[in-house]
Design a protein around this nucleic acid. Structure first.
Lengths: 247, 247
DNA sequence: GGACGGCAAATTGGATACATTATGGCTATT
DNA sequence: AATAGCCATAATGTATCCAATTTGCCGTCC
């Protein structure tokens, strides 16, 4: 689908981002411009624009005259990204509370929390419910970030999602207790924000994200292959939101 | 000077970054590719690569088929960036303390603190000492960030420096009391890190950065013109460190 | 037998030429 | 006279071509 107001280079960047995050281009692998241009059906010029963008985004490594390589992420990298995401999202809570969340935001959070409640009401984790859960989770976090009204904050959090596995779209959907507790955090965060208790919301959010990171890392350490398989099979598309709206 | 292992595009990106941060290209102004290419003495291809990079870096706004504009930064933007820098640098303290700063880092921090002490020993702010002070300040902050050993953290903090006025290279060098207190923070941060008191160091750093931001914003509100003049005249070069080392 | 040096193929970087899209001014019509 | 639509111009986006750098291979020399 060709979107008006988008260039071929923009499209290539989006496609490549998805390919990398989906693991189609393996980490460390060198990116051949000619091959890739042919594969994508475009010339090298827009492709190179896209590559430069992705390199600045941190998905590719670049070395002059030696081209681009897919950045490889170690478990250490994943940990370090969670260390950042946790403080950024906590700060989002603080700022949102300080600004005072408008009713629309509070209502939306409540509605999302209820959606989560419904999904968990059965007492088990239905695989079929995962996409809905993921949508709920992503929206919950994004709603708070947007409520903070800090463009750079949103940008940085988006960038942390460029690292495979770190996205809040990645969910370990196999332990009811853990998911339940995680959703309890959502309850408490929403309530704290309603009462403008920024520090409290921030503390919960920090732990909420940090724990998710710890858990993921533990799984990856225990059995990297199984965890990866599980995550890839349960990972949803990662539609990096376009920066420009059509007028 | 032509550095081996750097492409023309890289050089153009660096040059443009400096031009924008120095205010040579005014905010909101449209960037004419032909003109600029001629001005810089290169063709549009590497220029466009550089533009794409700077846009991803957040210094330029891009709209398909309408080209690039210099991003304009409001006082609100500056505030929002300080809100991020403060938590990121605080987190750097936490992580550095948790990892345990090696002696080399502690020694360096001590040495930097002493340099600051010497500059302030006279009891007045000598304009001639500003460059040394700035170097000291930048190194102090960078040393801690590097001690945290979290690549993304460093990257993000670097990016906050892409916003005019937010850099730790920008210093309000006109109030001895304030500078003295700020340096006292450095003392306490270094000491806390020596004792592996991460939370304490983080708290001080957070306030250290937040207050600098508040102060700057206050000045900009009071008398934008005067503050800008003062800052530009006292601002040093902003050498964005190259990401790759020659082997 | 190993290592250094040079040559050739492949790949990246940059310049130029072409296509496509916005933009401003002009005319014609209401 | 004002506005809508069209055309010309200018600027951006893409493709192709050429140059420069890397890289792997082979031969020679130590």
């Amino acid at each position: 689908m060709i979107v008006k107001g988008q260039t071929v280079a923009d499209g290539a960047a989006t496609t490549l981002r998805e390919m990398i995050l989906a693991g189609q281009l393996r980490p460390g692998e060198r990116v051949h411009q000619d091959q890739l241009a042919e594969l994508l059906g475009l010339s090298r010029t827009p492709l190179r624009t896209a590559l430069a963008t992705l390199a600045t985004d941190g998905l590719l490594d670049y070395e002059a005259n030696r081209g681009y390589r897919v950045r490889s992420f170690s478990v250490d990298t994943i940990r370090s990204v969670f260390e950042i995401r946790s403080v950024l999202e906590a700060q989002a809570c603080r700022i949102a509370a300080r600004l005072g969340c408008p009713d629309s935001v509070l209502a939306r959070l409540d509605s999302l929390v209820r959606i989560g409640d419904d999904i968990l009401a059965s007492g088990t984790l239905d695989p079929a419910a995962l996409p809905d859960w993921r949508r709920m989770n992503v929206e919950f976090h994004e709603t708070i970030i947007q409520a903070a009204n800090n463009p750079l904050l949103g940008e940085f959090v988006s960038r942390t999602h460029n690292v495979p596995m770190v996205s809040d779209r990645v969910i370990l959907w196999d332990d009811y207790e853990i998911i339940h507790r995680s959703h309890d955090d959502h309850h408490r965060i929403a309530r704290a924000l309603r009462h403008s208790e920024g520090e409290r919301a921030a503390a919960i959010m920090n732990e909420h994200v940090s724990f998710a990171g710890d858990l993921l890392i533990e799984r990856l350490r225990e059995d990297p292959e199984a965890a990866l398989q599980h995550l890839i099979s349960t990972a949803g598309a990662v539609p990096n939101k376009p920066k420009k709206e059509k007028k």
